[in-house]
Structure formats: structure tokens, C-alpha cells
């Protein structure tokens, strides 16, 4: 876990699978309005792709550094969600009434679409960062001084 996995097969297959998982996560996120899925599931799928990244490539590799960088996004998702609600307040409606989002040039269905989409992105970011944070704390809480944020 601490350094790169030594099997070439595992590395090659992960390079193939990780972008696929991330693509599927984005699909679930953006298609969740019309089909099954949504922000929560998309965030968890993104988390699993990140876990695979640092299990295979280790935290010292460029990809692992990217996983560590994601921890700085703690709370950003919540701010996005609450910010959408606040924008609705500013637009003259109730909190989280997406019709009053106030994006210029969009009709009422598109306003609601954008409102739900942006809050789903907020949920996804929040879930993904929390999942990675919990997994990294569990994996690196022992005495080895490998892990620094």
C-alpha cells in the first residue's frame, strides 16, 4: 500500500480501469436526474477509483499526490450545496427552491435542472472527499511516518 504495486499486470489494468470508473462516476452524476444514481453514488464510485489509485501506485507517485490533494476539498461540497440554496434566497424565493436560482437566460425547467445538478455535484464532492479521508486515516494511522498532509 505504501509504495507502487510491483506487478505489471495490475498496473496496466489499473491504468485502464481507473479512468473507466471515473467516467462511469461522471455519467452517473450527470445522468442521475433522469435515471438511477445521483450525487451520492457518483461520489462513492469516484472514491473507489481513488482508493484503487493509491493502492496500486502508492501515495508518492503523481497520481497518489493527486489523491492527497483531494483532501483539501473537505467541506467544499457542503459549501456548493448551501450556496445553491443561498442563491435561491438571493433570487427571491425560498431556500433550495431552484426556480429562483437566477441564472440569466434560462427558462424555468433549465433553472431547476441546473439547480439540482449543481447541488448533486456538491453532494458528490462531499461524499468523495469524506470517503477518501476516512480510508486514508484508516490506512495510515499506524506508526510509519509515510503520510503527511
Amino acid at each position: 500500500m505504501k509504495q507502487m504495486h510491483d506487478s505489471l499486470i495490475v498496473q496496466t489494468m489499473s491504468q485502464l480501469l481507473i479512468p473507466l470508473a471515473q467516467l462511469f462516476s461522471l455519467y452517473v452524476l450527470f445522468f442521475g436526474q433522469y435515471g438511477p444514481g445521483g450525487g451520492f453514488v457518483a461520489g462513492v464510485i469516484w472514491t473507489t477509483s481513488m482508493i484503487l489509485t493509491f493502492l496500486v501506485f502508492g501515495l508518492k507517485s503523481p497520481q497518489g499526490r493527486l489523491v492527497e490533494k483531494m483532501l483539501h476539498g473537505d467541506g467544499v461540497g457542503l459549501i456548493i450545496f448551501v450556496g445553491v440554496g443561498g442563491l435561491c434566497l438571493v433570487g427571491g424565493g425560498e431556500f433550495l427552491n431552484y426556480a429562483n436560482l437566477g441564472i440569466p437566460g434560462l427558462g424555468a425547467p433549465a433553472q431547476r435542472y441546473m439547480g439540482i445538478l449543481i447541488s448533486q455535484i456538491g453532494v458528490a464532492v462531499d461524499v468523495a472527499v469524506t470517503g477518501i479521508s476516512i480510508v486514508l486515516s484508516l490506512a495510515y494511522h499506524d506508526t510509519e511516518q509515510e503520510y503527511d498532509v
Partner: peptide, 11 residues
């Protein structure tokens, strides 16, 4: 979402 965020902070 707030609950998930709190769980992450607590962990």
C-alpha cells in the same frame, strides 16, 4: 450531506 461531512471530520 452535513451528516456525512461530520462523519468525515470525526474520523
Amino acid at each position: 450531506t452535513v451528516v456525512i461531512f461530520t462523519a468525515g471530520i470525526a474520523c
